[in-house]
């Protein structure tokens, strides 16, 4: 059974003058435990697709089933709960709360989770240590390097133990060294913990960490194929 199943998905923005919609009939299935990279030129609809998959946006038409349940049958509260419990997000721009410590940033998903407040500290600490930032626990984002910020974002994405991780160009703002460290962590999440990862990237060498690469063009799937020479975790070349 597929974790994610979409059929003939379309997304047209209201104010879009262009006749071609951002997504123009996308169909695909992603199984639990898969590591999928989405590639394609700028404006091809990658982020749009990811946002819909991550319950952050709604399609204009088509079918989207997550966990075998149609997206239309989720109420706003249920959608928020799915985002909180089953999904983790990593953004290109990090999106950490300013003037807030690493630990408190990582706690954020716990706040909306129903986990008792007395347990937040321990869970968040573990997540921060898991991305190798135990020594930066009480730093604020402005005191961190880009790579460190993205690792904080990963810790935050992990803290509620989600099934799927959505990452929109997580290495886009990083140099090759810190980008490599980030990709190593993401690949381990997939291989060692069995989490589904859906990752957008412009770079072929980043995409080759995935088992499968989907290429979009003009809101449609151009290619969808298994990776020939998959990188091992920690092997990041540029």
């Amino acid at each position: 059974m597929a974790l994610i199943e979409i059929k003939n998905l379309k997304k047209r923005y209201n104010d879009e003058a262009a006749e071609t919609p951002a997504l123009d009939g996308v169909s695909l299935e992603i199984k639990e435990g898969e590591f999928v990279a989405i590639m394609g030129p700028s404006g091809s609809g990658k982020s749009t697709l990811l946002h819909i998959l991550g319950f952050l946006d709604q399609p204009s038409s088509g079918v989207y089933k997550f966990d075998d349940k149609n997206i239309n049958s989720y109420t706003d509260e249920e959608a928020a709960k799915v985002r909180n419990q089953k999904m983790g997000f990593i953004f290109q721009a990090f999106n950490l709360l300013p003037k807030t410590t690493v630990l408190d940033n990582v706690k954020l998903p716990l706040v909306y989770s129903g986990v008792k407040e007395s347990e937040w500290e321990a869970i968040a600490t573990k997540a921060v240590e898991a991305v190798g930032l135990g020594h930066r626990m009480y730093h604020e984002p402005s005191q961190l390097s880009g790579g460190e910020k993205q690792r904080v974002a990963i810790a935050r994405a992990l803290v509620n133990n989600p099934k799927v991780i959505f990452a929109d160009e997580p290495t886009g703002n990083l140099d090759s060294k810190s980008g490599g460290a980030v990709m190593e962590i993401i690949q381990k999440l997939n291989e060692e913990q069995g989490r589904t990862v859906i990752l957008i990237t412009h770079e072929t060498y980043t995409a080759e960490h995935a088992q499968r690469i989907i290429t979009l063009r003009d809101g449609q799937i151009e290619k969808d194929k298994q990776t020939d020479h998959r990188h091992k975790a920690g092997e990041f070349v540029k």
Binding site: G54, L56, D76, E77, A80, K81, R83, N84, Q85, F89, N95, L97, L108, P109, V111, Y112, S113, R156, N160
Partner: peptide, 15 residues
């Protein structure tokens, strides 16, 4: 941005 982030991380409208 903060509001968007909180929502992405699971905050409901009520929160």
């Amino acid at each position: 941005r903060e509001i968007g982030l909180r929502k992405a991380l699971g905050a409901t409208n009520g929160d």
